[in-house]
Write a protein that binds this DNA or RNA. Structure first.
Lengths: 113, 113
DNA sequence: GATCTTGTACGATTGGTGCCGTACAACGCT
DNA sequence: AGCGTTGTACGGCACCAATCGTACAAGATC
């Protein structure tokens, strides 16, 4: 601290928007999960059970494309993001999704393939 | 008979494509249900329990747009269509969806709003 | 047969989506 | 300080998705 890196664009570190549990919208979640790449991301996140850094995923798209998909998943309430240094960790919002749409995530993830 | 109206494009009455149960694709179903209009269609279909004609639905879109949405729902395996004279009846493929993605449809329809 | 009803086909339009490369910021490490 | 790593921002691009109006086909009805 000290030299106050207050940022370039105005705000220092936009605190990463996450919808509150009660604000998660069903059609938004369905849309997020309807993309094969994003569904694969969610599947891989589900497997590791805990949180996991972006870079550790095996995905068939460019970095910038992955960033885009993570944002979609975050902004609709499917994943929670946490910044740690230069890395960003994600975890599935299992409990929140279960509270709002009981059984949905399980039924989606149950189907392998 | 007679003047042989064999069709303009070639085939007289394309028999309405429906995917087999085992060919229903998860991301396609999620995509179909992620549109608010189509989700409303499915909801209204679910309420009546049996099959129902296109025209009896209360939807905020033009006729031709509704036709488009019914086709999306049909081609991805969510609804079954049956032509009867000038009308077309639809029913939810509950059993098929339940067989392929257990719990999915219920968890989606459970959420009213 | 004439007309009404029900739904489709088609073309046009508008906006969103997925994708990439490049440039860059922020932090970690040596 | 300088370099490597990790992820973002932005511009661009091609394609898809949702919408509509109009025109039309196939039955139903009078």
């Amino acid at each position: 601290m000290g030299h106050a890196v207050v940022g370039i664009g105005g705000d220092e570190r936009t605190p990463l928007f996450h919808p509150a549990t009660e604000d998660i919208v069903l059609t938004d979640v369905l849309h997020a999960l309807s993309d094969p790449i994003r569904l694969e991301m969610v599947r891989q996140l589900d497997e590791c059970a805990a949180e996991r850094a972006c870079g550790t995923f095996d995905l068939p798209v460019a970095k910038s494309t992955a960033t885009y998909h993570w944002r979609v998943l975050r902004e609709c309430g499917v994943v929670q993001a946490r910044e740690a240094g230069t890395r960003k960790f994600h975890r599935l919002r299992r409990a929140d999704l279960e509270a709002r749409f009981p059984g949905l995530l399980d039924s989606v993830l149950a189907h392998t393939g």
